[in-house]
Structures are given as C-alpha cells and as structure tokens.
Amino acid sequence: MTFFFILLFLLLILGFFSIAIVRQGTVAVITIFGKYARVMAPGLNFKIPFIEVIYRRISIQNRSAELTFQAITADQANVNFKAMLVYSVLNQEEETIKNVAFKFIDEASFMQALTRTIEGSIRSFVATKRQSEILALRSEIIEHVKSQIDTLLESWGYHLIDLQLNDIAFDEVIMRSMAQVVASSNLKAAAENEGQALLITKTKAAEAEGNAIKISAEAEKTAAQLRGQGVALFREEVAKGMAESAKVMTAAELDASLILFSIWTEAIKHFAENGKGNVIFLDGSTEGMEKTMKQLLAVEQMKIAPK
C-alpha cells in the first residue's frame, strides 16, 4: 500500500513536470541538455520531464521602447531627442525564433544593442546637418534610421515597425536665439504687410482724388460751355430785338437812335440800382450810338441775306 502511494506520488510529479502551458502571444523555446530542440506554440504542451527544458519564452506581440539621447550638428549645436520605437519578432518561423532566442544572452542585451544602434544612426545623420535644418528634417531622419537598421534587425530576428521622434529640442541659449529670429521675422513680415496696406490706401486715395478732380473739371467744362451758349443766345436775341426795332422805326421814318437812347437810360438805371458803388464808363456819345446802330443793322442784313 505504501509502495502504491509512493508510485502515485511519483506519477503526479512526472505529470506535473510533463505539462507546459504557453500563453497566447508567446512561444517557448525547448532545449535538451542545453541544445535547441523545438518550439512550443501557445496553449497546452507536453515535454519530457527533466530532459526537455523551457529555455526561454519569447513574446511575438508588438513591443515599444522610449529613447532619450543627444546628438551634435555640423555647426556644433546640441540637439536633444526623445524617440519612441515599436518593434516585434519578424515572424514565427523556426529559424527566426532561434535567432531571437540565441542571438543575445538576454532581453536587456538586445534592448541595449537596439537603442545604441538607433542612436548611432540618428547621430551620424545629424552630424552632417546644420542646426537650422534639423527641425525640418524629422521625416528624413526617420527614413534614414529605417534604411540603416532594417537589415540588421532582420538578422536578429526582429522588425522595426515604427519610429517616432516625439521631441526635438536644442539647448536653452539656442532656443532663445531661434525665438528671437522667429520674432524678428514676424516683425519684418508685419512691417512689410503694413507698408503694403499703407501704399494701397494712399494709392486708392490718390486715385479717388484724381477721379474727383477729373469729374469736377468735366463738370466745370460742361458748365462753362453751357454758360457760353447761354450768353451767345442772349446776345443773339438782344441783337434780333434791336434789329427789329430799328427796322420798324426806319419804316416809320423815326430816328433809330431813340432805341439806343432808351437802352442807354435803362442800363444806367440798372447800374444805379445794382452797381454797389462800382465805377463803369459808358460811351453815351452820338457817334458811339450811331456806330452801335450800324453794327446791329449789319448783323440783321447778314441774317436776312439770301444764302
């Protein structure tokens, strides 16, 4: 009976050490006496107790790491980088898993090699660029790193999924100088915009003033033409009236100078009422009246002469 219990106990121990459970998202590398034997898939697995040993469990899920390091540009400016990388095992093939399991002594050694490789790649790229170029070359830096380490990582059994440069910062002195450059550029742009706006405003004002002067001149020209036409019509009508009066008086055998005398007296009356102290010289002699009468009769003769 005692032997039976001992045997049962040994069987339970053997059964316990024969069962291996591999979690989802991982695989287990089995060795026999220290030599690679096989790979266990996720789930319930069986192994030979005390002979087959789980050497290492490897995650096949995506993993991430954050890096912080410093680089120096071609013009000796210090640049501080914060990067986040996402990587994973290349695939679940046996050779790939063997590379991952045995290429490095442990996970810490692999991470150290990975981070130092990425830092070296970024530093070599930054060393060829000037400080003023770095901020605009974020995507170029990432592409450079991927092209440099993709083949190397594949030889280790890994694949770089993504690399993000979350922060690129310079020393405080450089940051202040960059801020001053940006501020001065903004002030220059603002001054240029203000100058352009002022130029446009003055140009428009000058155009408006020129148009106003032009319109005023056109209006004055038109008014002068109308005034001249009015004066001409007035003079024509006066001449017609005087000529008609002269004809009537001549037909009645009356002295036409009576007309001029009447106009002369009316003019003097008008000047006296509205002159406001102005001095006006009038030719009231008989010779002047006769001369004017002859001129009016000549005008009338020209108007009634056959054409």
Rank of each mutant, 00 (worst) to 15 (best):
F3M: 03
F5P: 00
L7D: 00
L11W: 03
L14N: 07
F17Y: 14
S18I: 10
T26H: 13
T31M: 07
Y36V: 06
R38A: 15
A41K: 14
L44T: 07
F46V: 14
I51W: 09
E52S: 10
S59V: 01
I72R: 05
D75S: 02
M84T: 11
L85Y: 04
V89C: 08
V89N: 02
Q92D: 00
E94H: 03
K98T: 02
N99E: 00
K103E: 02
I105E: 10
F110V: 03
M111K: 11
G120C: 04
R130Y: 15
L137D: 12
L137T: 09
I141P: 06
V145D: 06
Q148R: 15
L153F: 15
S155F: 00
G157F: 05
M175K: 13
V182F: 11
S185H: 09
K188F: 08
A191N: 10
N193Q: 12
N193V: 04
K204D: 13
I213H: 07
I215N: 08
A217T: 13
E218Y: 11
A219T: 15
K221V: 02
Q225K: 11
L226T: 13
V238D: 03
A252E: 11
L254K: 14
L260N: 13
F261R: 09
E266V: 02
I268H: 04
K269L: 10
F271H: 07
E273L: 13
E273W: 01
G275R: 07
N278Y: 11
D283E: 11
G288N: 05
G288I: 09
E290S: 10
E290G: 01
L296W: 10
L296R: 06
V299N: 12
